[in-house]
């Protein structure tokens, strides 16, 4: 009797499990595509990073972790890593906190027309391709005909005039500055959307309680956009470690490798110096760094989430 009762239950459970497995067929194509185009290259990159490849002869030699050991002793990797960190720090300050403040200011305007106007004004640079922006700023920084040096001279700041992209000490800052100009408006727009979602009642109540603009910003806007802030920090930091186009267009990592970032150094090693194994090792480092940053930030924002 006992056995008889258990059998239908087991059959039901098997059917349910089989049914669950069958439901996977609907996702199979997507899973195969994601596996093939996203996860397989990641695994393959780690495999390539343990080899030394001669692209001309096609010979592949296993070198174990030698590429990672070489990476630890490569002085340009440190320069590139520092430049990526600078990129991340400056971008977080401007494109996250700066954009948040600007969005709060815009959304605080009474006139909807002016709010739309300022959102559009700040968003326009983001609509331009990064390669085009890079070329545009190359001309702005150009020592002979550039707008920046000409403006500094006219303003009586001739002592600051210099080849911004040709000077080892200023090249990376010049590129980062361009990147802020380009990305600032996009972040502002996203923060503006997040702020619009906050019920006006909260502001009205706070105003009636005597809260000033700064208090409303700190006690209402900031906590209620924390999720967006967290997301923007992740996007900005991971973006800073994946930066490539603007550096290639403006300096190609020069002068004397001073503006190299991990992405351009990877390209230099793999495609210029024919060292694909070492390039893959650099790519693995970028992957790990961005993964860790993303995971840490997600964990932090999940803990501090505020719900309405």
């Amino acid at each position: 009797m006992v056995h008889g009762a258990a059998r239908p239950q087991r059959q039901k459970s098997l059917r349910a499990r089989f049914g669950n497995l069958l439901s996977f067929r609907w996702a199979a194509i997507a899973l195969i595509l994601i596996g093939w185009f996203v996860y397989y290259p990641i695994v393959d990159n780690f495999v390539v990073s343990t080899t030394d490849q001669d692209i001309y002869t096609g010979e592949v030699t296993n070198v174990g972790l030698a590429n990672y050991d070489r990476l630890l002793h490569d002085p340009i990797v440190l320069v590139a890593l520092w430049n990526n960190c600078l990129y991340a720090i400056i971008s977080v300050v401007f494109q996250v906190f700066g954009a948040f403040l600007l969005a709060a200011l815009i959304e605080d305007l009474r006139s909807e027309r002016w709010r739309r106007f300022w959102r559009a004004v700040y968003f326009v640079p983001s609509a331009i391709s990064i390669t085009v922006t890079g070329l545009l700023f190359y001309f702005i920084y150009q020592p002979q005909i550039g707008l920046l040096d000409a403006a500094l001279s006219r303003l009586g700041l001739g002592q600051l005039v210099q080849p911004w992209l040709g000077n080892e000490h200023t090249a990376i800052y010049a590129i980062i500055a361009m990147s802020q100009w380009q990305g600032f408006g996009y972040s502002t727009l996203l923060f503006a959307i997040a702020i619009q979602k906050i019920p006006r009642d909260l502001y009205d109540a706070a105003t009636m309680d005597g809260a000033g603009a700064f208090r409303r910003l700190w006690s209402i806007t900031f906590p209620l956009t924390r999720e967006m802030t967290g997301l923007m920090i992740i996007v900005t930091i991971t973006g800073a470690f994946q930066v490539f186009n603007e550096v290639m267009v403006m300096t190609a990592g020069g002068p004397n490798n001073s503006s190299q970032v991990l992405g351009t150094w990877l390209y230099q090693k793999a495609f210029i110096e024919d060292n694909f194994g070492y390039g893959a090792a650099i790519a693995a480092v970028i992957f790990v760094l961005t993964m860790l940053t993303g995971a840490a930030q997600l964990w932090y924002t999940k803990r501090r989430r505020v719900q309405l």
Partner: peptide, 17 residues
Amino acid sequence: VAAVSSLGLSMGGSSAA
């Protein structure tokens, strides 16, 4: 790491030319 290295090893000495 050993698994990844062994995958690389499996390609050792191969030639596509």
